[in-house]
Design a protein around this nucleic acid. Structure first.
Length: 572
RNA sequence: UGCCCGAUGGUGUAAUUGGCAACACGUCUGACUCUGAAUCAGAAGAGUCCAGGUUCGAUCCCUGGUCGGGCAACCA
C-alpha cells in the first residue's frame, strides 16, 4: 500500500489526468509543436512585479509555467517585471526569490529583470520612431485620457500625432537626457485611436519618472510601460509561451503589435491567458493583502492566515501540498472559485504520509490512575503508521496524566466513545483505563478524573487484545513540556468576502476569531528540541508545525489544519 | 451603445477526428481501526445556459439570444 502512495506511481496523482487529457494550454502547445513552431522549443517564464509578496494564485502560475517547461523538456525563466520604480522594492524581490525557490521552480541561470533590457528597449523605441510608428506627445495625462474616448466611443488623435520623425527622435532623446519634468511628455505608439480595443488607441510606451530604480539607480528617467516591455522581454529571453491571466486578454493585440515591430526571424512568443485562482473565504489581490498588512489586520505578509506563499509556508504547508493543489485545481478560462476544502485536503494528503505522529494536549484535564503502582515507565510508540520506516520512540507514562478536556464528559451523549463515569477507553499506546469518579472545583468544573487501569491491557502485551471503543491521546503530567499553540481559522466569515453591499468594505467580513492563542498546552517531552518549520501530526487533533519564533524554552506551534472529524460533524 | 472572453452535478476539471457525460473535492452510508484520522467499499447528485439549425446522432459544429467576467493608469 505504501508503495502505491508514492506520488510518482500513485495512479490518483493528477499527473495522470483521466484519459490522458490535457488542459487547453497543453493543447495549444501540442498544436504549436505539430506545426513545428519555434523549432519545437518550449520556454515559459514567471514574470512577477516586485511590488508585493506572492500569493497562492501566483503559486498556481509558477507551478503551471514550471510544470509545462518540465513536461515538454523546455526551460523556465524567472523575470522581474520592474518597470515602475515607484512601487517596486528590493524587499519584494528577495521574498519572491525565496518563494519561487521554495516551491521548487528552478530557473537555473535564467534570472532576469525587465530592467536588464532597458537599453535594448530604448534602441528599439528609436527604431519604431524612425519608422514613423511612435511619437512624442506633449499633453498631460488628463488630456490624453480624454482623447482616448470610452469603450463605446472612438478616441481622437493627439495634435502631436503627426510630428516629424526628426522632431520625435530629438524630443525622445531629450526625454531620456532628463530635459523634462515628470509627466511633461510621453512616447506613444502610433496605432489607431478609433480601435474598438482601448489598448490600441496609441498606448503610452514611455513616461518620464525621475525616480530611483532598485536596480538601475538613477540611470534612467524614462521608464517603459508594461505592454511595451513585456512582450519584448519575452522576445529577448526566447520565451515561446507567455502565460498570463485573463485580464490581459485584451492586451494581446498590442502584445502582438509590439512584437511585430521588432521580430526578425521565424521565432515569435505567444501570449496565452488563463483564469486566475480564487478560493472561498479569502481575498486574492495584492492590493487587499497589502491593506491587511498595512492596517494590521494580520501580523505581516507571512501571517499564517494569509494566502501568501510565505504565510502558507509558516502555517505549515509544504511545496508538495501546493503542487497537489495546483494539479487538482486545473487550468481553464472560466472564472472559478475553489472550495478552500480542496486546499485543506491537499495539505492533509501531503502531511499524512510524511509527518511523524506525536501526542499533545491542548486543553489539559488531569487524570489520576489510582491503582498505578510505579513512578513511571517508558512506552514505545510508532512514529508514523503510514510509514513503515518511520521508527519508534519512547514516551513516559505515569500515574498522573493529562488528557484533552473535551474527551471527558460527566453526562455523555449516545455513541460518545471517550471517557465518562463508568466508561473505559484506551490510552493510545498504553493501557485501558476506566473512569471511577471525578472531582470538581468550586465553580463546578471538572478538575480531576480518577481512573483505574488494567495492567494486562498494555499495548502489544499478552492481554492487549481486549477491544474498547475509544482511544485517547495523553501526556504524562510530570514529564510534559509546555507550549503555546496558535489555532487559525478562516480569515473571513463569508465564502465570498468581496461580496458586500454598495459602499461597504470587504474588511467588514473579517473573522474576529481567526486567531486563537492557546497557552499552557502540554506536549510530549521529545518535542522540546523541535526546530522551527518541523511538522507533526498531533494525534487526533491535526497537523501542526513549529513556528519561526519558537525556541526550546518557549515552544510555539501553529495548527496547519485539523484532522477531519466525523464525530464533530455528526454533532453539528 | 462598442470590443474581447466564458457558460458541463454543490465546487473545480474532463469527455481531442460529433456516438446519449468521467474524475477529484465536498456530502451521505457501511467496513476496518489502539488516531471518531488514514484506508477500503458503496450511494446520492448534472442530461451539459436557452431557442433554433446541420446530422442517423450535438457537451462538441452553425445562427440568434440570455447570463457572468474583463477593457476607458503616464499600474502590472
Amino acid at each position: 500500500m505504501t508503495e502505491s502512495r508514492n506520488p510518482e506511481n500513485d495512479p490518483k496523482s493528477a499527473e495522470s489526468r483521466p484519459g490522458g487529457s490535457v488542459n487547453f494550454i497543453e493543447a495549444i502547445i501540442n498544436e504549436d509543436l505539430k506545426q513545428g513552431k519555434n523549432n519545437g522549443r518550449i520556454h515559459t517564464r514567471f514574470p512577477p512585479e516586485p511590488n508585493g509578496y506572492l500569493h497562492i494564485g501566483h503559486a498556481k502560475s509558477i507551478l503551471l509555467n514550471y510544470g509545462l517547461a518540465k513536461k515538454y523538456n523546455g526551460k523556465f525563466n524567472l523575470r522581474f517585471d520592474d518597470t515602475n520604480p515607484i512601487k517596486e522594492e528590493q524587499e519584494y524581490v528577495d521574498s519572491i526569490l525565496e518563494d519561487v525557490k521554495w516551491l521548487g521552480a528552478d530557473w537555473e541561470d535564467r534570472l532576469f529583470f525587465a530592467s536588464d533590457f532597458f537599453d535594448q528597449l530604448y534602441e528599439w523605441a528609436e527604431k519604431i520612431i524612425s519608422e514613423g510608428n511612435a511619437y512624442v506627445d506633449d499633453q498631460p495625462a488628463t488630456v490624453i485620457a480624454q482623447q482616448r474616448g470610452t469603450p463605446t466611443q472612438p478616441g481622437i488623435e493627439s495634435p502631436f500625432h503627426d510630428r516629424s520623425v526628426e522632431e520625435n527622435l530629438d524630443l525622445f532623446r531629450r526625454m531620456k537626457a532628463g530635459e523634462f519634468r515628470d509627466g511633461e511628455k510621453v512616447l506613444r505608439a502610433k496605432i489607431d485611436m478609433s480601435s474598438p480595443n482601448m489598448h490600441m488607441r496609441d498606448p503610452v510606451m514611455y513616461r518620464i519618472l525621475h525616480a530611483h530604480h532598485h536596480r538601475t539607480g538613477n540611470k534612467w528617467c524614462i521608464y517603459p510601460m508594461y505592454d511595451w516591455a513585456h512582450g519584448e522581454s519575452d522576445y529577448l529571453e526566447g520565451i515561446t509561451h507567455s502565460i498570463c491571466t485573463l485580464e490581459f486578454e485584451v492586451h494581446r493585440p498590442l502584445y502582438n503589435w509590439f512584437v511585430d515591430q521588432i521580430q526578425t526571424d521565424e521565432y515569435r512568443p505567444r501570449q496565452i491567458e488563463f483564469a486566475r485562482l480564487n478560493i472561498t473565504y479569502t481575498v486574492m489581490s495584492k492590493r487587499k493583502l497589502l491593506e491587511l498588512v498595512n492596517e494590521k489586520f494580520v501580523e505581516g505578509w507571512d501571517d499564517p492566515r494569509m494566502p501568501t506563499i510565505s504565510g502558507l509556508r509558516r502555517r505549515g504547508y509544504t511545496p508538495e501540498s501546493l503542487r497537489l493543489f495546483a494539479e487538482k485545481v486545473g487550468v481553464a478560462k472560466r472564472d472559478n472559485v475553489i472550495d478552500v476544502a480542496l486546499l485543506e485536503h491537499s495539505i492533509r494528503e501531503a502531511l499524512n504520509r510524511h509527518s511523524p505522529r506525536v501526542m499533545a494536549v491542548l486543553n489539559p484535564l488531569k487524570v489520576v490512575i489510582a491503582n498505578y503502582p510505579q513512578q513511571h515507565e517508558m512506552i514505545t510508540l510508532e512514529n508514523n503508521p503510514e510509514d513503515p520506516e518511520g521508527g519508534t520512540r519512547e514516551v513516559p507514562f505515569s500515574g498522573t496524566l493529562l488528557i484533552e478536556r473535551e474527551d471527558f464528559l460527566v453526562d455523555p451523549p449516545k455513541k460518545f466513545f471517550r471517557l465518562a463515569p463508568g466508561l473505559e477507553v484506551r490510552l493510545k499506546g498504553a493501557y485501558i483505563i476506566r473512569c471511577e469518579e471525578y472531582k470538581t472545583d468550586d465553580a463546578g468544573n471538572v478538575a480531576e478524573v480518577i481512573c483505574t487501569y488494567d495492567p494486562d491491557s498494555k499495548s502489544g502485551g499478552a492481554g492487549s487484545q481486549r477491544k474498547v471503543k475509544g482511544t485517547l491521546h495523553w501526556v504524562s503530567a510530570p514529564h510534559a513540556v509546555d507550549a503555546q499553540v496558535r489555532m487559525f481559522d478562516r480569515l473571513f466569515l463569508r465564502e465570498d468576502p468581496e461580496n458586500v453591499p454598495e459602499g461597504e468594505d470587504y474588511k467588514k467580513n473579517l473573522n474576529p476569531d481567526s486567531l486563537q492563542i492557546l497557552e499552557g498546552c502540554k506536549v510530549e517531552p521529545g518535542l522540546k528540541e523541535a526546530m522551527p518549520g518541523e511538522k507533526f501530526q498531533f494525534q487526533r487533533l491535526g497537523y501542526f508545525c513549529v513556528d519561526k519564533l519558537s525556541t526550546p524554552d518557549n515552544l510555539i506551534f501553529n495548527r496547519t489544519v485539523p484532522l477531519r472529524d466525523s464525530w464533530a460533524r455528526s454533532q453539528g
